[in-house]
Amino acid sequence: MEVFVQQLINGLTLGSIYGLIAIGYTMVFGIIGMVNFAHGDVFMVSAFIALIAFLILTTWLGVGSVVLALLIVLIVSMLFTSIVGWTIERLAYRPLRGSFRLAPLISAIGMSIFLMNFVQVTQGPRNKPVPPMLSDVIVVMQEGSYQVTISYKQIIIIVVTSVMLACFWYVVQKTPLGRAQRACEQDRKMAALLGVNVDRTISLTFVMGAALAAVAGTMYLMYYGVVSFADGFVPGVKAFTAAVLGGIGSLPGAVLGGLLIGLIETLWSAYFSVEYKDVAAFSILAIVLIFMPQGILGKPEVEKV
């Protein structure tokens, strides 16, 4: 029971990170119908930006308060990652709009390889550790000698994720930009006829996806305390799994899917085997796509001729 509660807490933390990345996949898929294969690497790039910002703040500027430093790091990382996300869309995807079906996916795979190796070349192939921060824990439950704990960083991750999702929900539901996005998602041609700037809306979708990935990247760096250039691939595929599980194109679905994937992964590691935890996530992807392609909250796809 205690092990289960502890894994529940860990799973929710991990799931929040996956959920934030999954939103980027699901929004882009909803609006232009492509799998942005490079999104996992955008997440990795954001973790590196966060790492560099953190080092500048702590070692050069001598910011003592970790919370203040993290807040600034978060903003800086979101800002620069947004620029990266915008640039990728502009250079690698926009010229291919309306091109043949597989071209954007191939371009995205190329972009993913490029980003990974760009970071490897500029930052070196080694793991980058940061000193552990905010590792104090609160004991939630105690049974014999086993303590169920929740650490400050886990609380921060869950709180920041919730706040970000609330802001994001507000933008999508209540602002003109969100309305334009939803219009483009339903019918791009009609939205353009009605005066929605489709190119700009798609660009901003990429920017928002990248900004949320940057939140995930900063949280990931803080939680694990280490990042390397290859860290984008597996979380990327898992977040994509989360988006598919929740129903691709559905924003609440992406968050739900992320939480579920996080929980399944931690519970699998705790009760079965750590080595095969990625197999569990990848199998879920295959099983969901085969038996439930519309996901939990998605709309069934209607095939038109």
Partner: peptide
């Protein structure tokens, strides 16, 4: 040689833009 995959990824993107097929 450390630039080989970097160039490889870039070429993939460029060829898709130039000749998508």
């Amino acid at each position: 040689t450390q630039y080989r995959m970097l160039i490889f990824g870039l070429v993939m993107v460029l060829i898709m833009i130039w000749r998508p097929r």
